[in-house]
Structure formats: C-alpha cells, structure tokens
Nucleic acid binder design. Structure first.
Lengths: 213, 213
DNA sequence: CCCATTCGTTACACTTGGTGTAACAGTACA
DNA sequence: TGTACTGTTACACCAAGTGTAACGAATGGG
C-alpha cells in the first residue's frame, strides 16, 4: 500500500532532509565548501554519514537543493505563454521579472559567503551549476522541438534553447553585479530593463550585425 | 638555468606522459571509464599512481588531453578573419569546415567505444566536457568584448559567444549523428551544408520568428 | 671527468567522497 | 496485537587525489 503523503514517516524524513541541508549550508557559508567534510555535516546534524548520502547523492547536491524551480519557470515561459506571444517575447518578460530577486540578492550580500561566492571559484560546484543549466536547456529544447514539430535530430531547437538560457544567465549575472555595486532599487531596475531590451533587441534582429561599427 | 626544450629529460617526460595517456585510453575504450581504476592504469603503464596524477590532475583529463586545439580554432574564427567578413559569417565557415572530421568520426565508429560513447552517459566526463565548452565560450566572449569595445560587465558578448559555441556544438553533434546513420560522404556533406545554412539563416534573421508557423 | 644541482619519479601513508550490506527501530495498517 | 514496510544506522570497503621524503638519472659548471 502506498503511504499517505502527509504521513508521519514522510514528515520525519523531510525534517531530516531539511535539517541536513540547513546544517550543511550553515557550515559551508561559515567556512567554505571544501573545508567542511561530510563526516562533520553528519555529526553536526546528529545523523550518520550514510543518511546524508541517502538524501543527497553527492556533496554538491547539498548546495543546490533549492534551485529546482528555475527549470519549471523557464519551461513555463515556453509552454504556458498566452496566445499570440512569441517565445522570444515570453522570455524577455521572464528576464525582466528577474528584478524580483533583487531583495534576495541584497540579503545574500551580508553573509560571509553568498551562494555565488560559494559556487564561483569552486570547480566541482561550478560543474554542478553547468549541469543544472544543461538540464534546463535540454528540457527547453524538447519543448521547443515539440511546438515546432521539428524532426528528431534537428539542431535548431537546441540552439534556440541554448541561446535563451544563455541570455537569461548573463542577464541574471549582470543584475547581481549591479546589486553588488549598490544603488537604489529603482536605478537598478531601470538599468536592468535597459540591459534586457538591448539583449532581446539583438536576438530579435539577428546576430549578423554584431559587433556594430 | 632553464633546461633546453629538446633535452633528454624533457623527452623522457613527454614519453611518459604519452605512454600514460595512451595506456589509459586503450583501457577506457576496451572496458569503459568507470571500470578502470587509476591504479590499474599506473600498473599497465609501469608507472606509479602518483606519476599519473603528476601529469594529469584528474582521471578525466586522461580522456580530454587531445581536445586543446578546439579553443584555438574558435578563437581564430573571431580574431583572424579577413576584413569585411562578419563574425557570424566566419563562424558559418568554421561550422561548414567541420566536414573534415567525418573521416575521423568513421574511424571512431569501429572502436568498441568511441570517444563520444565514453563521454556520453558518464556524469563526470560530461561535466568535464561542459567545462571545456565553458572555457571556449569565455575566451570567445572576451575576444568579442575586446572587438566591440564593450564596457566591462556587458552581457552581450557573452550571449553572442554562447550562441555561437552552442550552434557549433549542435551542428557537430548533428554531423556525428549523420555519420553514425551511414551513407556516402557527398550525401552527408550536402545535408550538413543544409543544416549549417538553416541554423545561420535563423541566427542572422533573429529568433523572433521561431518557431515558424 | 667529477661534483653539485635539478627535477621527474617513486613508495607510502593518509584524507575524503561515496557504496554495499545487514541489522535495527519506528511507522503503517489490517 | 502482529506484520510488513522503510528510513536510519554501524561497519567494512573502494577509489580518487594529496603530501612528503627520498631515490636516481639528466644537466651543467669547473
């Protein structure tokens, strides 16, 4: 018999999972990823090392356990867009909406190590990040191929998806940089809007004229 | 005193390096990446495990030690192109020229495991592959930014670079697929040319109209 | 030709990420 | 209450990768 989703067992399991992830991230932020061993995490969470690996296949997964909704949002921008809105426009809107992460970015800045401090400069975490992006690209490419009715093996959907995800990433990074540099929210939002327009203007008109001049 | 580049010491070192790489790749192709331990490689090459790691920082590097010229070629397509040729056109030419790898692809097919069989399906090797691509993208983005005179932090060069590298990869993969499916060289070349034109036509005209219809 | 230096290599001990297994303990359910 | 389930545990184990001191061949100067 399948267990009820709200059962006590499930509850405890989720608590354990959350406890492990929180403990691990607190340690990572305090001292850095490589300077914390899984044995330590297990000890601090009062759990066996094996239990840690039961919940998270690799040590890197402990850092990325939150970022699972990015995929859903990007996919929704393709599949759930209103009639008459092109994919490019839908993605532009998605990128514009990134300003809603500004508050979180600011909060992250006060930590001794922000999420991105943790990731950037650490090879295994950067690789994991690429993995996540690659996965999103693939999901998106599949959705595009389905909508376009592309024949199997057609490289176009993949290329479009890779471009859109690349643009999204670059714009997000740029936004984070602006937040780091400081300034009022309105200023940052205005600059970000300009960035998005520039990028999607280029993508809309084609790359043939780049660089200009 | 710096040792002369053609010294006996240097020669022996290079021989050792080559021996290790060849031994490792022969074992990998025969039995698969995960099924061969570094200890085995060292034993087969009659060398200590430490020496293997002295030459190749990670086990994955043993597989990728050849692919270092891809970066140079992509970069040259941007920096060494004739006057009056756009970057997009230069990259189209680069992609068209990929047909020169067809012979190598055919040769690879007869092995029990081709290079790509080895990489695809193995998480750590796929990650390493992404790492290589990421590096190429970054180098390209820097060159583009320099040529465009972009201000630091401008996301455009990065996005263009990511798109170009993405297109190159997708077209290469498509070409490999065609080779796997068989057929005469002329047929494959013709189909590849059509692929390249379709992709660069889209990139030139802009993504706004994708998918068509 | 000999001597001192350099440096690639080695043996060895060690750390750490990750797995396999069998047993234990609390939950679900009849 | 009894039984099947399942998350957790202890423990033994494997493989990747590092640090170190020492060995020995290549090198270059006197």
């Amino acid at each position: 018999m399948p267990m009820s989703a709200g059962g006590l067992r499930e509850l405890k399991k989720n608590r354990t999972r959350q406890l492990i992830a929180d403990t691990a991230n607190a340690l990572f932020r305090a001292r850095g990823f490589d300077e914390v061993t899984v044995d330590e995490i297990a000890a601090a969470a009062q759990v066996s090392k094996k239990t840690v690996f039961n919940h998270f296949p690799t040590k890197e997964d402990l850092v990325f356990y939150r970022a699972e909704n990015r995929e859903a949002m990007s996919l929704a921008a393709v599949t759930d867009r209103p009639a008459g809105v092109s994919i490019l426009d839908s993605f532009r809107a998605l990128c514009l909406a990134q300003t809603r992460f500004v508050a979180g970015m600011r909060r992250d800045l006060v930590h001794p190590r922000s999420f991105f401090d943790l990731v950037s400069g650490n090879p295994s975490l950067e690789r994991k990040m690429h993995e996540v992006n690659e996965r999103i690209t693939r999901v998106l490419a599949d959705a595009l191929a389905a909508e376009a009715g592309a024949e199997p093996g057609d490289p176009l959907p993949r290329i479009v998806a890779s471009t859109l995800v690349g643009a999204q990433r670059a714009l997000y990074r740029r936004l984070r940089q602006r937040v780091r540099e400081g300034g009022p929210d309105e200023e940052i939002e205005r600059a970000h809007r300009a960035d998005v327009e520039r990028v999607f203007d280029l993508l809309g008109k084609g790359l043939g004229g780049y660089p200009p001049g």
